[in-house]
Design a protein around this nucleic acid. Structure first.
Lengths: 204, 204
DNA sequence: TGTACATCAGTGAACGCGCGTTCACTGATGTAC
DNA sequence: TGTACATCAGTGAACGCGCGTTCACTGATGTAC
């Protein structure tokens, strides 16, 4: 953290191109959707020739995949942080994970769609798959704690998956504006606590 | 239904271009995602010059919107049909709506994503919004019947929305292959009945 | 039944555009001696 | 500390491509008389 002013690199070498390209693509994906970016435009935003990105990424899909991977890391961190804010085993801890998830989606709908959309280039990428499982692991842990059951228990997996579908669906419906008018609970939290109670039982 | 062999129109006029373009775009969207189609390719598949589509659609977005609208109609019809298969007020009737929804998603992931994704061209299209509300109306009706409450009751809206998020999330996770390994209930039906019971209470 | 004409769904050629990617290159940087 | 050299992150020009859209056109169809 000496001189990371993000734009004005006057030296010949850029020094931070890889990270800055990822940031540029992230912005483009937010602005135009997961398919609405181009390597050329990302290069332009990073102030660099259109050939430069190929020094850091094999091709367009690899660049996209890097953005998705970075997004998934942020999501998992946010979920962990949410979980840690409440006592283990409380419904609140589960709802907080959901809140982190929804916030992530709302805060970056483009990246959220990218991460969960198998967009062209990263159909079965094992790295992304592993990161996804790691996110689900957070839900599993919280669910097991609420139910006082081991994580491997079938009921835990079942309930955790149900929670995931709800939060995932709510996130998508929110960012896709399908929710307006049809539904007005007093914000996400009421919804998340309601759904957690319904799925995990009314004990707190 | 006199001679609708879909490809071989040897007359100068095509006669069925509009419908055939929509079908072509539907196929392309399934093959390459909501953004992965081109007017040119659709024209090619319909056996027509690349200028011909513009006799039926103002521009690319309008063609996409037509495909989305047609998709939403099919979804609503399927939901209604599912609902009608079981006694009104039964948990099964609710699960059947969910099953129709999931089947629709699995049967045409591309169109499903298109319909629910505000892809570039149809951000706030009132026609699509109305068709979406009409889908939600089916869920509302079924929920009200189960709960023995009027459709306008706040609890009905709340529970119906919860159901929708779950089914929507399950659909997305399924078509995006995020579900493999993590979860293996014995198919959709067990999941749908489970979630209906959790959200609407254990009464049958 | 026959003819004149308006309509309109098609053609095919052309346009300008931005993209992904490659290529030979250049100049800054780090290392070995 | 100084020099030679390998490395490698950048440049900028060029390529071929497919796309969305427009345009003047043509030929089939339906209708009025």
């Amino acid at each position: 953290m000496s001189d990371d002013t993000p734009s004005r690199r006057s030296s010949y070498h850029h020094g931070d191109l890889r990270a800055q390209l990822i940031a540029a693509v992230r912005d483009l994906v937010e602005a135009h959707g997961p398919d609405g970016f181009s390597v050329a435009e990302a290069a332009r935003q990073a102030g660099v020739s259109s050939a430069a990105p190929y020094k850091h990424f094999r091709d367009r899909p690899e660049l996209l995949r890097a953005v998705a991977a970075e997004g998934m890391d942020r999501l998992r961190d946010a979920m962990e942080a949410g979980l840690a804010q409440h006592p283990a085993g409380s419904l609140q801890s589960v709802a907080a994970i959901g809140q982190a998830y929804v916030d992530f989606a709302r805060g970056g709908p483009g990246v959220f769609r990218l991460v969960f959309g198998l967009t062209e280039g990263h159909e079965g990428d094992p790295l992304l798959q592993e990161k996804g499982s790691s996110c689900f692991g957070v839900v599993l842990r919280a669910t097991a704690a609420v139910l006082h059951l081991p994580m491997e228990d079938a009921a835990v997996r079942e309930r955790a998956y149900m929670l995931w579908t709800c939060v995932h669906g709510h996130s998508f419906l929110t960012i896709d504006r399908k929710t307006e008018g049809k539904f007005d609970m007093s914000g996400d939290w009421a919804y998340l606590m309601g759904i957690s109670a319904a799925i995990l039982g009314p004990r707190g």
